[in-house]
Write a protein that binds this DNA or RNA. Structure first.
Length: 414
DNA sequence: TCTGGGGTCCTAGGACCC
DNA sequence: TCTGGGGTCCTAGGACCC
């Protein structure tokens, strides 16, 4: 049996752990640049707030006094690892699926009802984050069970689908667009053929599903029928791509500002590479104007650069990324976003006879920088600059309660 | 005025080769 | 009136996930 555990309204819950006064009150968390709502508390959901641009809910926010937070990924990342570490202690095999979700392998466990409740209870008690658990014979069904656990209080956070009757009932109550692997487009197409629930989807013939929705659709179809096709992946597969990009807090026209952003993104990619002990063979740099502004001239451009020697050296990666930027930057446009993508990754670096870089020395330098930097950022390259022109808008940022000494909360005893 | 960021997988179609 | 067939590799684009 598979379990899917999922933190309820994760970002909101993280904020509430340190702001218990907000329990029971409407809260929302914003995207980078505070432009978009990306997490909503149940109370705010009931007021009609959705994951959409903030300005669409200006009225509700004022009227109901909804508390907003800029996203604080340092805090969420740290809370996530606390949750995951508790889960790893309780279950042998776990696949961390996203910042707030994990699949659990229940092979060999009996009495899943009791064990499941013990898991959810322990996580919430030790971290303050409320969680829900769905259990079933496939990952896709466990996802569905999880939705029921979250939606209906009577389950007390744990829902198990462990017989045919429950499976069919659950599928009949699940709209097709809520199924893991069925997105907006495919749901719409299925609707056209009269398929609106997960159950109706499973009643179609396998060959039709295969023909219309390729092997991915067929896999979902099988999983819904209880045939497990997707296994727990304990060791995260090596990334095939590493990307860092951001929208700017405001539109930028100046090359120097954008080059500071590119240098910072490139350096962040290099960090991510070193963390997984991998090397870049090539990278892509891109810049965009704001495509929502139809009144302004648009310019979107990218360039791929092959690196002479596979590397994870920040200095080198930044150097090539900036070289790329020089090629694609055009004066006179108002840019809104840029980024660096490492497009080809390998596990080792093969030397090059004509290599002018002293790799051993650089390696040591990077190790020292990584050690000093730890979680925060102490050392950066000169090209990353100091101007804050391109930085995010984060007007409602909460303190880094768990990762910054000066932000740790004080408890006063009387 | 304000519109996230970071990933994956699959397919179709073109280029090229024999 | 006819213009092969099959294979590989690459890229762009579409779809999905959180």
């Amino acid at each position: 049996m598979f379990g899917l555990i999922d933190c309820n309204n994760f970002y909101v819950s993280c904020e509430r752990v340190f702001r218990p006064d907000l329990n029971g009150k409407p809260v929302a968390v914003l995207s980078n640049n505070d432009g978009y709502i990306i997490a909503v508390s149940n109370e705010a959901k009931h007021l009609g707030v959705k994951r959409k641009p903030v300005f669409e809910f200006k009225e509700e926010i004022e009227k109901y006094n909804i508390t907003l937070f800029s996203s604080n990924y340092t805090l969420y990342g740290d809370m996530s690892s606390r949750v995951m570490s508790i889960l790893s202690q309780m279950v042998q095999n776990i696949e961390i699926y996203s910042i707030d979700e994990a699949f659990l392998d229940f092979e060999g466990h009996n009495n899943l009802e009791t064990f499941g409740k013990e898991i959810t209870h322990t996580v919430t008690k030790n971290t303050g984050i409320p969680v829900s658990l769905g259990i079933a014979s496939t990952k896709t069904l466990a996802k569905i069970a999880n939705k029921f656990a979250k939606k209906h209080k009577a389950y007390h956070n744990v829902c198990i689908i462990d017989n045919e009757e429950k499976r069919i009932k659950a599928l009949q109550l699940t709209p097709i667009e809520d199924v893991w692997g069925i997105g907006r487009r495919i749901a719409k197409k299925l609707n056209l053929y009269g398929v609106t629930t997960a159950y109706e989807f499973t009643q179609q013939s396998q060959s039709w599903v295969r023909k219309m929705f390729t092997i991915t659709g067929e896999r979902t179809w099988k999983e819904l029928k209880g045939i497990a096709c997707i296994d727990i992946e304990e060791i995260p597969p090596q990334r095939k791509q590493i990307c860092t990009s951001r929208s700017f807090g405001k539109m930028l026209t100046d090359y120097d500002n954008i080059s500071e952003a590119i240098a910072t993104h490139a350096s962040s990619c290099a960090n991510k590479l070193r963390k997984q002990k991998a090397f870049a063979n090539s990278l892509m740099v891109f810049i965009h104007t704001n495509c929502f502004r139809e009144d302004l001239p648009q310019h979107c451009q990218n360039i791929v650069i092959d690196l002479p020697v596979a590397t994870n050296d920040s200095i080198e990666i930044v150097h090539y990324a900036l070289q790329g930027l020089k090629h694609i930057f055009v004066e006179g446009f108002q840019y809104k976003k840029c980024g660096v993508i490492i497009t080809e990754i390998s596990n080792h670096s093969q030397g090059n006879l004509f290599d002018a870089v002293d790799r051993d020395k650089r390696d040591t330098l990077m190790q020292i920088i990584d050690k000093l930097n730890g979680r925060g950022s102490v050392i950066k390259l000169a090209s990353q600059g100091n101007s804050k022109e391109w930085h995010l808008k984060q007007e409602q940022l909460s303190p880094r309660y768990t990762t910054n000494w000066s932000d740790v909360i004080e408890i006063k005893c009387r």
